[in-house]
Amino acid sequence: MDQDDRLRHSSSFGAAAAAYVQHRPDYAQAAVGWALEHAPGLRVLDLGAGTGKLTATLVALDADVVAVEPDPAMLAELRRALPAVRALPGHAEAIPLPDSSIDAVLSGNAMHWFDMAVAGPEMARVLAPGGILAGLWNVMDNRVDWVAGLARVSGSAAIGPRDVPTSWRTETANMHLPKTGGATRFGSPEQAGFPHGQRRTADSLVATLATRAGMLVMPEQVREATLGRSRAYLASRPETADGEFTLPMLTCVLRVRRL
């Protein structure tokens, strides 16, 4: 994805901020705990915080959180949901925090939108020595047969290779790590996945898919046709046709330590 496409996709969420609040999942506490495991303290930056899905999990773990989010509509939802959290407008490429002021920089389902050539040095700048940088992604477990079928029917705009565990490791192994080119160095990256789940109905799962960036930037007719195929598929499966079910997921983490 080139710079223009990345910007178009990453700036699409504001129009769906309310739906994002309602339908996007939170993050497994065990995954967030693992991301923070070796941090020198609990001053945590949630970068690209969106509506506060990851922020809320950090608050539950007693972290001292600062949230930074560029989209005004997403930031407004975060402030509404978590009024006690310090929430600032800003970008990964220009973080509004002092040098070495943060023990961990975490990013939930957002790091792939950053321009890492610029954001990498910025994240390194705000991290204290020994600090942790971690990206977290909620992925649908396509090792389960009906989830794999949904991914095939819905297409990569709704469920892409980064959104399923069978390809997540390869997709995130190196492309989202900072290459500072300066004095700051990072250790070897580590990856781990933690079981998670979300109670859904067929309609609410389709609504979740509709909040993906690839869907939001589609022409309306194409988007409705894609969501229609997903809805028909879910109606055809015994696991999802009637009432609530648990969508099997993992919260997957890529972490690296500043040396």
Rank of each mutant, 00 (worst) to 15 (best):
M215H: 08
G48I: 12
V222A: 15
S12Y: 07
L36H: 02
T240G: 08
V44I: 13
G50S: 03
R200E: 04
D99Q: 14
G90M: 05
G197L: 03
A92S: 08
V126F: 14
S230Y: 02
A128L: 09
A134L: 10
L54R: 04
S11G: 11
V153P: 01
A183T: 12
V68E: 01
L209M: 03
V68Y: 02
A19V: 05
V59P: 01
S236R: 11
Q221H: 15
P195S: 11
H91G: 05
P195Q: 07
E93P: 09
Q221F: 15
D163V: 00
A60Q: 08
A124K: 03
V126G: 05
V164D: 00
E93T: 10
A63C: 13
H196V: 00
F194R: 08
P98M: 13
A17F: 09
V217M: 08
V206L: 02
G41V: 02
T240C: 11
P98N: 13
R162P: 03
A183W: 10
A207K: 04
G52Y: 02
N109K: 15
L47R: 05
P129F: 04
V153M: 05
C252F: 11
R79D: 03
D2P: 06
G243Q: 15
P189C: 09
W168I: 05
Q22I: 02
H196I: 00
L45H: 12
A119I: 12
M111Q: 06
L88I: 06
R258F: 06
D163E: 04
R223K: 13
A81Y: 06
V256D: 02
T55P: 04
R143E: 13
D99Y: 14
T55F: 10
V65A: 09
M111C: 06
P25D: 00
R79H: 08
V21Y: 07
